[in-house]
Design a binder for these strands. Structure first.
Lengths: 148, 148
DNA sequence: TTATTTATTTATAATCGTTATAATTAGTTT
DNA sequence: AAACTAATTATAACGATTATAAATAAATAA
């Protein structure tokens, strides 16, 4: 399953003439297998034992390469570090405002919003971003325990 | 119209024990009357002729105060500067990927998404963020002219 | 194969938005 | 007026990201 994702991703890169370096392979592999939404630094830390000389710049550079190839989505959070998400199928994120955890959920198209926005503003619409914020079950439990 | 918004905003601040300093008054006034989505630096630049000694920190501090009072919403964009939006009614933003312009549009509640997300993930949902991306009419026109 | 070009990585410095700190000023309360 | 508190200012620091230049690796041409 995840091997297939990796294989497809590598194929996509090859097609666009991007070299598959060991670092790139490892970063992609980590993104796919960790099943999380890591920051560039998370990735750097996770791989530094295998690539002791790797630079953070390499991580950033390659995440940009992957983003431009459409393999990876960047989730930006103001002053805080961006998180990177391997693109599989369309999904949205719900984010815990207490611990920062990000959980995926699916929701059938919000095409209607795009259409309405295009109609009202005259924009040519390309995409949208939707995030839901709240408190995850674990944090909610903790808050109850401490009678917050 | 905008005077009323300003008056209400000042009342809200007074109620929560926040002092109305000349700088705060000016920042709020600018946010309301500019009808735009300025960065902290935009505000700083717009007011520096009236407050030659004002510090950027003051702008940031007060935008945080306003945000915490619910008067202002902060729109974050990764590494780029946040934009600040005086809260009037519920609306969403459509952003031009070419020139960065932000235009408001209204859309009747996405409560259903919140409910579904809560149900699927077990989160206690507080809010959501939705943005649409595309190309504004002006940029689209330019692109056509240059046969892009 | 070797030489040459090109892409990639590395190391490091720089940038930029934002926040922290400490000193000063202004406003409030006693 | 004195004492206390809040807000502002000036400046330094921070952290995420990017730019730069040198070094290395890979691909292509000779």
């Amino acid at each position: 399953m995840s091997e297939l994702h990796l294989k497809n991703a590598l194929d996509t890169l090859k097609k666009t003439g991007v070299r598959i370096t060991p670092q790139r392979h490892a970063i992609l592999e980590y993104l796919i297998e960790s099943m999380s939404h890591p920051t560039a630094d998370d990735i750097y830390k996770a791989l530094e034992h295998r690539f002791p000389n790797m630079s953070v710049a390499t991580v950033y550079n390659n995440l940009r390469v992957f983003r431009e190839a459409g393999l990876v989505r960047e989730l930006t959070y103001g002053d805080n570090a961006s998180r990177f998400d391997f693109v599989t199928s369309k999904h949205y994120h719900i984010i815990c405002e207490s611990c920062g955890k990000i959980v995926d959920f699916h929701y059938p198209g919000l095409d209607e919003v795009e259409h309405l926005a295009a109609h009202v503003t005259g924009f040519k619409v390309n995409s949208h971003r939707l995030e839901v914020y709240g408190i995850c079950p674990e944090c909610a439990k903790k808050e109850n325990q401490t009678e917050e």
